[in-house]
Design a protein around this nucleic acid. Structure first.
Lengths: 258, 258
DNA sequence: CGCCGTGTTGAGTTGTGTCAATAACCGTGG
DNA sequence: CCACGGTTATTGACACAACTCAACACGGCG
């Protein structure tokens, strides 16, 4: 449970890149700064095996890239929903706020992950999306994506799988919050981050977490002091080695069995 | 937070029934037993304002109705995903199980709610769906629904909103599990059930909960004894009146402010 | 009627929160 | 480059909400 990355868009990147490396070479060396037409984002967002024509269609709706500095907000809960976003570089957290001010982090999005899926339902974003490091996203106007989905079956199915994947990811989190101890949650979180970073080409054993203890705590349903204590405990048990945000996993099996 | 019913399909029922009462009278009095062609399920599942032709198209893919007895399983996690289900009558719980046997109830589905959305992502259902009373569902083969979505824009958008609504519903639950006390959770749960039952034409102040204390506890991330104690507390504070599964809400404002 | 699943209540335990002091880290500007 | 201030992280002592275990009560059904 919770080890899932939902429907992992990045699987597609890897498969796409190995299968089609030379299909998608840029057609021209110079392009406008806000417009990256070398299909780099398509590889992240779209399924493999698309025809060049389909690729061009998709490319035509991904209009702009946007840079977001650490701490800045991409969208806020209740903002008018127009577009989905795909993280190009950096990372985000999504946060929902209760009327009394309590906050819950509902996810951390790394490169290739989608942002804004909750906005489709009411035409308003359902959470805040905040960059936790300097980041860039590409913007996918949703009404254009819907048109495309009616025309290209594989894209339609891809979008359905992304939304479904988000549902599955969240139910894994429900299990985590509903049934697991603080130590188990932190262990599961580290394994999950390890998997996701590995899928993005980083080391699965040694990495830097982009978020603070407070954000981790909010995500995992505990106070930041408890997160800190659990890291200390895992370290004492020789399962991980931590120095602030830097993590080294020493014993995957041990972590799974916590 | 959590007061949401996600993207409430039932809103459509109400609007549809008031706006189109006479548009959808059955064309023939006699029909096969497993096949309910009087469009009753369409009213639950589909948006209003469809043309008669569109209605007929949808009707043609909703092939069968299935009865499920209390305690019986509609589908299990990891079963092959073929179809979505819409609850026609009765109610269900969805449950995910950790490898060590711990269970988490991730939702309760009442009439009009969808089941199986998490299965799209991996082609396998992501949870068990268990009837908590004698129930019936109608079966929507997903590949046919996808075809229809490519042809009929409003249906496509409706499906997108349902999936997005499920994402939003779950993030509300994350907030509940991550930040709220046992008493707050139970109060929020009662208000949520009240809203949903009201939308289905029942009293919002007095109703029967179909699930056990154990299931409520699992859903709310606490033990059944704690649920029971919280009911006792809310009763002592004159916010509700409970006798087992029968609930009477005495003070909505008070419950919201818990 | 008696049984079994379900719900309630009590007493004692414990995991996590709270509050607080200190340490490490990071970005900024001198 | 280092000094500085603010943010972030660690650690300790204590409190309390929720859990555990256990006894008992209720209620629907055979």
């Amino acid at each position: 449970m919770f080890s899932t990355d939902g429907y992992d868009v990045v699987d597609f990147v890897a498969r796409y890149q190995s299968d089609h490396t030379n299909d998608v070479t840029p057609s021209a060396p110079e392009r406008p700064a806000t417009r990256d037409s070398d299909y780099s984002m398509l590889e992240i967002w779209m399924p493999p095996g698309l025809t060049p024509l389909e690729l061009k269609r998709i490319d035509s709706i991904i209009c702009t890239t946007r840079m977001i500095k650490r701490g800045d907000v991409l969208f806020r809960a209740n903002d008018n929903f127009q577009s989905l976003y795909a993280v190009q570089a950096g990372s985000f957290k999504t946060v929902i706020m209760h009327r009394d001010g309590r906050e819950q982090v509902t996810g951390f999005q790394l490169s290739g992950d989608a942002l804004g899926l909750g906005g489709v339902c009411t035409e308003r974003y359902s959470c805040d999306a905040v960059a936790i490091e300097d980041s860039s996203v590409c913007i996918i106007p949703f009404h254009l994506l819907e048109i495309l989905c009616r025309e290209v079956k594989v894209i339609q199915h891809h979008v359905h799988r992304m939304m479904s994947g988000e549902i599955v990811r969240e139910s894994g989190l429900l299990m985590l919050l509903g049934t697991m101890s603080a130590e188990e949650r932190v262990a599961a979180f580290l394994l999950n981050m390890s998997d996701r970073l590995k899928a993005r080409g980083y080391s699965s054993t040694e990495f830097n977490l982009p978020m603070t203890r407070k954000d981790m705590g909010s995500y995992l349903g505990m106070k930041l002091e408890t997160v800190s204590r659990m890291f200390a405990k895992l370290q004492k048990d020789k399962l991980v080695d931590t120095h602030g945000k830097h993590i080294r996993i020493l014993d995957f099996e041990g972590l799974r069995d916590v």
